[in-house]
Design a protein around this nucleic acid. Structure first.
Lengths: 115, 115
DNA sequence: CAGCTAATTAACTTATTGGTTAAATATTGT
DNA sequence: ACAATATTTAACCAATAAGTTAATTAGCTG
């Protein structure tokens, strides 16, 4: 039942509230109350979201007096980016261009297509 | 209740079976039975996963006789990569290096650190 | 048409998720 | 020690997700 880390990362990110929290934290550290402020949701709900983010390693929490300031941690995002990178050819067009190129040289035209 | 597309994409990806299906499809088109073969899961379960992937736009399905060949679609991955890119500074170290640089020039040393 | 293969739909079960309110805990400041 | 503020935990609820088996649909082929 213990999930692989990519699954944990993606599940944590698959919630708009949690992504909004990360967006806020990308501007700098914030307390739980700070983070809760933009939402209609109750504080315990935010607390739960933060726990999910923390278990995914996407945030870490310090301790200053009664506040528990949160900060964004990039490591899981890096892993995600690396995973995603293996699919790049499916969106950046280089594969199609290579495909075109292979078709072209097979036709035996050393100058490539004319328009 | 209608989810934004990033949420839909991330939820679809947040399942190891579905990511394995995408990995398989990155090698080329496949039928539902082909895709089901590596898993212990029942065929209806795979069918459901495919529906999730299709609704997320991560795959498309053709029709050849009684087969419904699936192919990977990169567009949602591109959007995800773009979103992720806005967080790059949290993992690639450029932010820290910039920080070091700023500290350096504030010290007034035009040649930077010595070791 | 009958039968085979491919895939989906229906109906159901179980576990997880995302939220709630109320109570508890932690830490500071008087 | 007490009150105030910040946050978490507990207990609960409704909706969703991921799986099952059984039945159905779709298309080919003899």
């Amino acid at each position: 039942m213990t999930q692989d880390s990519l699954t944990t990362t993606l599940s944590a990110l698959a919630d708009p509230t949690r992504r909004a929290i990360l967006a806020r934290l990308s501007q700098g550290q914030a307390t739980v109350n700070d983070l809760a402020e933009p939402f209609q949701m109750s504080l315990p709900a935010i607390s739960k979201h933060l726990k999910v983010l923390e278990r995914a390693g996407l945030i870490s929490r310090g301790r200053q007096a009664q506040w528990r300031p949160c900060r964004l941690e990039g490591a899981p995002l890096k892993s995600l980016a690396e995973w995603l990178e293996t699919y790049r050819r499916f969106w950046d067009g280089s594969f199609d261009r290579m495909d075109d190129y292979l078709k072209e040289i097979q036709k035996g035209d050393p100058n490539g297509p004319r328009n």
